[in-house]
Structures are given as structure tokens and as C-alpha cells.
Computed example of a mutant assay.
Amino acid sequence: MHRLLAILSAVLLGVMAGPLAGWGQAMHETALFAAAANGDVAAIRDLLARGTPVDPRDAEGRTPLLVATHANRVEAARALIEAGADVNAKDQIQDSPYLYAGARGHLEILELTLARGADLKSTNRFGGTALIPAAERGHVETVRRLIEAGVDVDHVNRLGWTALLEAILLSDGGARQQQIVDLLIAGGADVNLPDAEGVSPLAHARRMGFEAIAARLAAAGAR
């Protein structure tokens, strides 16, 4: 009788251990996401030391590193990357830590991702590289760094636009955009590569009244 009770107790404990372990792991993963969002490096290191996976996914497919990148939590991102977080892991809308850092001009995190194997050919949900939204949004130093890293300056996204075209079409033509056009030209961008409708960068710049950009393009041989 005592032996039977012992066996039943052992079986019951075994059945309960799985769900309890899974629940505990889920709690640790939730805590890791919170620590990443808040930039709590000590908590990140503690959770990882306890065996929490570095790249769990939330309901939107994001990893803790992508959550830290969204909040521009540089030291949290550094801790996660040093622990092996995947800088190219994409969420449900095709953002990765590398792509998001580039698009948002989070230069310090971008540098961390470049040092850890960022896929320069990876593309976002619009079929664009990190360089294209960086150019559109006027992130001058980010554009400079991505060109230096070797991102294709003439990549065409699904809208039919290059970084040069987006720097013109989706901007105010101001000083930052002028600097970006200079960087793209110096980086070897084809100044005559048209959009999907066959309209050139120079034609767009003139149509929009961006005389300073038009002058730069013309000096570089644009037609």
C-alpha cells in the first residue's frame, strides 16, 4: 500500500512538473521582454544566467532585442547581442533589430548589429533595405554608415524607389536631405535610375521645387 502511494505520488509530481516548468519559463521570458523595454541590463543578465532563452518571441513575433531596439535601449541591446541575440530576427511585419535601427536612425544599436553580422541584403515589408527609410527620414549619419557598410545604394523596393528617389520624393528637400543626396551620389548611386513610371530623380526634384537637390544631381550627370 505504501509502495503504491509512493508510485502515485511520483507520477503526480512528474505530471505537474512539466506545466510548472513551462509556466516558470514563460514568466522568465515575459520578464526578459520587460527588462529589454525598460533598459534593465542587470535584470537581463540575471534572467539569461538563469537559462532564459535570449530570443523568445512575443505575440507580434518580436524578440527582446527588437523590443530594446524599438525603445533605443542601447545598453540593453548590447547585453542581449553579447549573449547571442539574433540581430536579423524578423517580427510579423518583417522588422529586425538591424532593419529597425537603420530605419529609425538608432545609430549606436545599428553599429552593434553591424558588428554582429547584420544581413545587409535583408529587406523590410516594402522590399527595401535599411538604407532606403534612413534616406527618406533624413538620418544623415545612419545613411553614411550604411553606405560605408556596403548596403546596395541602388536597391529598388516594391514601390519602384531607390534610396535616392525616397530622399527626394518623401522629404522636404531641406539641409539634411541635401546632405543625404550628396552621400548617395558619393557612394555611387545611379542618378539617372528612374522610378517605376520612368521618372528620373532630377525630374522629381525639379517638379517639387528642390533646386539645391536638382543642382547636385545635374552636377553629377543627371538628366
Rank of each mutant, 00 (worst) to 15 (best):
M1S: 13
R3Q: 13
L4R: 11
L5E: 10
L8F: 14
G14Y: 09
M16W: 14
G18K: 14
G18H: 13
L20N: 07
L20W: 13
L20K: 02
L20M: 11
A21F: 15
A21C: 12
G24S: 11
M27S: 09
E29S: 01
T30W: 03
T30G: 06
T30Y: 02
A31M: 13
F33C: 08
A36E: 11
A43Q: 15
R45T: 15
R45S: 15
D46V: 07
D46Y: 11
L47Q: 07
R50I: 05
R50N: 14
V54R: 08
V54N: 09
A59W: 03
R62L: 02
R62D: 01
T63E: 04
A71Q: 12
N72W: 09
N72V: 10
R73H: 12
V74R: 14
L80G: 08
I81E: 09
A83Q: 13
V87C: 09
N88R: 07
A89H: 11
K90E: 03
I93P: 01
I93K: 05
Q94P: 00
D95W: 12
S96D: 05
L99T: 04
Y100M: 05
A103N: 08
H106A: 11
I109W: 10
L110N: 11
L112M: 15
T113R: 14
D119I: 01
L120A: 11
K121D: 15
K121I: 02
S122D: 15
T123W: 00
F126C: 00
G128C: 03
I132H: 04
P133R: 04
E136R: 15
G138Q: 06
E141I: 00
T142N: 06
R144L: 07
R144W: 02
L146H: 04
I147N: 08
I147A: 02
I147M: 10
I147D: 01
V153H: 07
N157S: 01
R158K: 11
G160W: 06
W161R: 10
A163Q: 04
L164M: 09
L165H: 03
E166G: 00
A167V: 09
I168A: 01
I168S: 05
L170C: 02
D172Y: 04
G173C: 08
G174L: 06
Q178L: 10
I180L: 08
I180G: 08
V181Y: 07
D182R: 15
D182K: 14
L183R: 15
L184N: 09
I185Q: 10
G187H: 06
G187R: 14
G187A: 08
A189H: 09
D190P: 00
D190G: 05
D190V: 06
V191A: 06
V191T: 02
N192R: 04
L193A: 11
P194W: 14
D195H: 05
A196V: 09
E197R: 05
E197H: 03
G198Q: 08
V199Y: 01
P201Y: 12
A203M: 11
A203D: 14
A203K: 10
H204Q: 04
H204Y: 12
R206S: 07
M208Q: 15
G209F: 07
E211T: 14
E211C: 00
E211L: 04
A212S: 12
A214W: 04
A215Y: 01
R216F: 02
L217K: 02
A218Q: 15
A218L: 11
A220N: 09
A222E: 10
